[in-house]
Computed example of a mutant assay.
Amino acid sequence: MKFLNTTLAGLLASAALVSAAAAADCEITLRSSDTHPDGYPTVEAVKSMAKEVEEKSGGRLCIQVFPSSQLGEEKDTIEQTQFGVIDMVRASFGSFNDMVPSAQLLSLPYLFKSEEQMHHVMDGPIGEEIAQDFDAHDLVVLAYYDGGSRSFYNSEKPIKSVADLKGMKFRVMQSDVFVDMMSALGANATPMPYGEVYSSIQTGVIDGAENNWPSYDSSGHYEVAKYLTLDEHLMVPELLAVSKVSWDKLSAEDQEIMRTAAKNSVPVMRDLWAQQEKASEEKVEAAGVQVVTDVNKQEFVDAMGPVYEKYVTTPEAKDLVKRIQETE
């Protein structure tokens, strides 16, 4: 085992040196952060973008992708990207809920009817409109990725109704919407960094969390939380953004190369996502996870009334939610 660890360390070190050497040959090297592990659909999508950018720029412009929270947890990397310390970040819309009002609306439970409808919303005029809201926060949105449908998982019991959630402690992203969602369901929200969830479930600090199939799998959370309830309460998009500080240093030609490559990375991500969802579902079910599908979803939807009343208050917000829900 010691030999294997030593060999692995050597390989990783060699890979890092090769990457550094490649970056040294580029006139401009942008660093892109992702909390997900290498091989995850979002990571691979940005890699495909990086390949296209390097090819179309003739090797002048390069993107180095740093997965597995190497540059920090999501909240931290967003702030660093705003200041230009990191050039690019892949993050969930949920992480912007308390920063960008339209992002908060996209995190409303049961807003989207399906992933296909979400694609139509984000790929169309509404998506372009929302992207502009990030300009004021020194972030230039390049692409929208999928976050899948998020469901509850826990270590205690199968959850089939709202009553089953009463008093349970669930990790959510640090967002008022998600905290209020849990309160409306009678549960206790515990915001914490993604990297702390496994040990917190294992030690009983929390009872569970909520996420999509690939994250439930890749994080290993299924090992300590064996009950998954497919209520699909959230379909929160993810975005790939570049720091305005870094963006303004690029020529118009390089900006266009970046935008095109980012757009082309979207179908790559979605195809990989569909494959990963299926593989993750098969993997966790084989590991003995109890998947609850007979959920009274309407009961969960009805419980969200107070959440919508709290966050959909202005005429602009009501109009945006209405247009999203009416998109086919």
Rank of each mutant, 00 (worst) to 15 (best):
D34M: 11
S183H: 12
L111Y: 04
E328L: 15
T260M: 12
A189V: 08
G186Q: 13
K75F: 08
T293F: 01
H119M: 12
I159R: 12
A252N: 12
V172T: 15
P109M: 08
V245G: 04
V89K: 02
E210I: 08
K263Q: 14
V224Y: 01
A287D: 10
C26G: 04
Q64T: 12
K322L: 09
N296G: 00
V18E: 14
A131Q: 14
E256N: 13
V65M: 08
E116P: 00
M122P: 03
N296P: 00
K278T: 10
A22E: 13
S251G: 06
H36F: 12
Q70Y: 04
Q132V: 13
K113F: 05
L272K: 15
N188R: 13
F83I: 09
G59A: 03
Q132L: 14
K169N: 11
D271N: 15
F152E: 03
T29W: 05
G186D: 14
W247N: 09
G195Q: 01
G147Y: 10
E79W: 07
D25I: 01
A16T: 13
L234C: 03
T229Y: 02
P315T: 12
L142R: 07
T81P: 01
G220I: 04
E281I: 00
M235P: 00
V162P: 07
D302H: 09
E128L: 09
S92I: 02
A13C: 04
D231P: 00
S155W: 00
V295C: 03
N264H: 14
K157A: 12
E223C: 01
K2Y: 10
Q174P: 00
E282A: 15
D98K: 14
L234I: 12
F152D: 01
V141K: 10
I206P: 01
A279T: 07
K297Q: 10
N188H: 13
A286T: 08
L4T: 11
K278L: 10
D138S: 15
K166F: 03
G94E: 05
E210M: 14
A252M: 11
S107W: 05
A184H: 09
C62P: 02
S280L: 02
F300G: 05
H120L: 15
Y40K: 04
T314H: 09
D25V: 05
V179S: 06
